[in-house]
Simulated assay, not measured.
Amino acid sequence: MFKEFREFAVKGSVIDLAVGVIIGGAFSKIVTSIVNDLVMPTLGMLIGKVDFTNLFITLDAGDYQTLADAQKAGAPTINYGIFINNVIQFIIMAFVIFLVIRQINRLRRKEEKAPSSPTQKECTYCTTSIPIKASRCPQCTADLV
């Protein structure tokens, strides 16, 4: 069982997956920072100095100035501003992943279209298909040099 696990763990696909998860986690932090520190403040400024993290609806009769005040008081809230932040983060992540996959697919298409050198040639006497490096036809024994 240990031998099977070792073989599984060192396969290229498992290692690639682990690297992808680590890079994805780091990339997620970058996107979160872009959204929270750049996009949302700019968007909030454009629509009237609105702080999206403080957009919420309280489900009790209390009146709270900020989401932190409502949470401190233990009031139930619907935090639609945080939801908007998360939707924008998702859209940015999805768009970046789309661009990466699009580039990978473009590179794969170029690799598939790359002409390969011929491996077969035709005997000029009997028209049999033979390896390109052959100097004599195996069918009719003609010299091909």
Rank of each mutant, 00 (worst) to 15 (best):
K11Q: 09
V14L: 10
V14R: 12
D16K: 12
D16L: 15
L17D: 02
A18R: 06
V21F: 03
V21C: 07
I22S: 05
I22E: 08
I23Q: 08
I23K: 01
G24R: 03
G25V: 00
A26I: 14
A26C: 11
A26D: 04
S28P: 00
S28D: 06
I30Y: 07
I30H: 00
I30F: 08
I30Q: 03
S33P: 01
N36P: 00
N36Q: 09
L38R: 01
V39M: 09
P41F: 06
P41W: 03
T42S: 15
L43D: 06
M45T: 03
G48E: 11
V50Y: 01
D51S: 02
D51Y: 08
F52P: 03
F52H: 00
N54P: 02
T58K: 02
T58G: 02
T58I: 02
L59M: 10
Q65K: 14
Q65E: 10
L67R: 15
D69S: 12
A70Q: 05
Q71W: 04
K72Y: 12
G74T: 02
G74D: 08
Y80H: 08
I84S: 01
N85M: 04
N86P: 01
N86I: 00
N86S: 15
V87E: 14
V87W: 12
F90V: 05
M93Q: 15
A94W: 09
F95D: 09
V96P: 02
V96Q: 04
I97Q: 01
I101N: 12
I101E: 13
I104H: 13
N105W: 13
L107W: 10
R108T: 12
K110T: 07
E111W: 02
E111I: 04
K113S: 06
A114V: 02
S116L: 14
P118M: 09
T119L: 15
T119N: 12
K121E: 09
E122R: 13
T124L: 10
C126Q: 07
T127S: 15
T128A: 15
I130T: 06
K133E: 15
K133Q: 13
K133T: 14
A134F: 03
C137P: 05
C137T: 01
T141I: 08
V145A: 06
V145W: 11
